[in-house]
Design a protein around this nucleic acid. Sequence first.
DNA 1: CAGCTGCCTG
DNA 2: CAGGCAGCTG
Length: 737
Amino acid sequence: MPDHDSTALLSRQTKRRRVDIGVKRTVGTASAFFAKARATFFSAMNPQGSEQDVEYSVVQHADGEKSNVLRKLLKRANSYEDAMMPFPGATIISQLLKNNMNKNGGTEPSFQASGLSSTGSEVHQEDICSNSSRDSPPECLSPFGRPTMSQFDMDRLCDEHLRAKRARVENIIRGMSHSPSVALRGNENEREMAPQSVSPRESYRENKRKQKLPQQQQQSFQQLVSARKEQKREERRQLKQQLEDMQKQLRQLQEKFYQIYDSTDSENDEDGNLSEDSMHSEILDVRAQDSVGRSDNEMCELDPGQFIDRARALIREQEIAENKPKREGNKERDQGPNSLHSEGKHLAETLKQELNTAMSQVVDTVVKVFSSKPSRQLPQVFPPLQIPQARFAVNGENHNFHTANQRLQCFGDVIIPNPLDTFGTMQMPSSTDQTEALPLVVRKNSSDQSASGPPAGGHHQSLHQSPLSTTTGFTTSSFRHPFSLPLMAYPFQNPLGAPSASFPGKDRASPESLDLTRETASLRTKMSSHHMNHHPCSPAHPPSTAEGLSLSLIKSECGDLQDMSDISPFSGSAMQEGLSPNHLKKAKLMFFYTRYPSSNMLKTYFSDVKFNRCITSQLIKWFSNFREFYYIQMEKYARQAINDGVTSTEELSITRDCELYRALNMHYNKANDFEQVPERFLEVAQITLREFFNAIIAGKDVDPSWKKAIYKVICKLDSEVPEIFKSPNCLQELLHE
DNA sequence: CAGCTGCCTG
DNA sequence: CAGGCAGCTG
């Protein structure tokens, strides 16, 4: 915050005015300011002219007809007419300038005295000079110094100045239309007309917290918004296309590989098939949506996932055969006695290199695509992809095998959909499991599960099962595995599996995890980025990554708020150390009963959760968010009713099939599997709706804090939450009855 | 100051 | 839904 300090210095009174961040506080004033500022600007530009005409025409300045009308109105015989035609969008401005020029005899210095310059003559003058000095310095410095100047020269000179000035003025106008406050400051007189002057503080807050517009105004923006969305969708589609292309290229390389591989080593087939099969359904999911028609048979042979799979199987076999530590001296062993193995080794090395370079190029390419516009996704999604790059680099120098382009295309997305089956049993549970399920939270320590069997609730396991584990048959066991196998050090196993899998993740996730992946996407990305910070993926400490990920990462999530002693990895407590998606679901259902639960109440109703400040505030935040949504809906429908001509609150009632209820139910009870939404909730909702209705009708919404009165009413309408919600298993009991 | 709430934003 | 912030309350 640049002005954080100065903010602190502001008087308390000023701060309290923050309350006036009402729903529609700035709506009227902002547009009024803009209009006034605009009018003022043009009246300043053309004090003799009709202000309204000018303003109107400028608004319409893209409209050729209007421009022409104005031009006629303003027109005096002018030799520049033709010269200006190439700038249709600027004709109004040009006319204004012309007008001024003619009045002042068309001589250069007169510009400074014209109305146009009244708000910033210095700037304009300077600009004109600096601008035209590039073209014709003498003219600028001494416009009068050439009494013998020919008419042509005069024309040219004025034309240049005109262009410069025209561009300048157009810029100003453009700027005005984007920032009314700037325009406002431009004219001292205007402040007198505006009753409330805008203090710096105010404008700062205006920028920082934009007010929501009422329905009516919002609708005018919605088209714009949807257009933007469309654009983004298109970009996404293109990216997808790119990935598909890369996959195609990969399959080509894969074929090459098989030609070599199958001829040299066929005994691995059985070994590979297991994981191939397991991989298959995974990849089918990804491909299911590919418009490229491919038969399953084709996929069997050419799937990129299998390709990598085989490569790794080969590598692993080599390692075992040679009985050597994995990551050391790979290159030295290239000249082993067994030529067949050494060839495979070489191939493996090559492949690793290929993966390395390909990854970096993929990252570069996609980043380039994304970086053209500021996208939040970018830092979230792609940094993880760089991990393999860093790690692969350990494996030695580059074997120039394909062109860079080929590498890019071939390996671009292989790692992404491939959950690293070979090592998956050890590594994947940590990453995939963790990232799949939890919104902001410390999930129940899975050591509890592996050590003492399934959790009491029984729901957790399924929730945290990754798509991979579902298809490969291993159930999520623990992310604190005993890292007994030396293979753990292999570059492939880093937690990257999860973040990268999350890239196409939504598309490939198994059905049951779909909404969870969506719900927790933000967490996942945050987790990954956290992880990046805390574990820079040094190849020297590979074993630490998988374990370090979940716990230290999660701990850092709560930062200093977290009581670290509560989170000992080996505490083995039966309490949840975080809030699960089921807790969220439960909280939502509880909202049907209570809108303003106290923290004590939350503690009693979430007795299976180990409470700390972090958890408490998260829960409270949930309810705050619930309320926010609730009240937004209420206001929306109240306004809608008013627009629809409803005049009496009697006409407003909420039933289980009314639109408003459905919206609420969709939010708090998405699957509609909670069938006992209490009648009381409908009543409260109806009361709320009527409160909003009355307040708006009474015009109270001009008061910035008009909603607070409503909140006060509603908060008294909480009812008792049924006892059953106190049970940790209440969801099962509630939803399966 | 802590705890809570609401507003805005991402 | 979460983070950040501001304001209110006790």
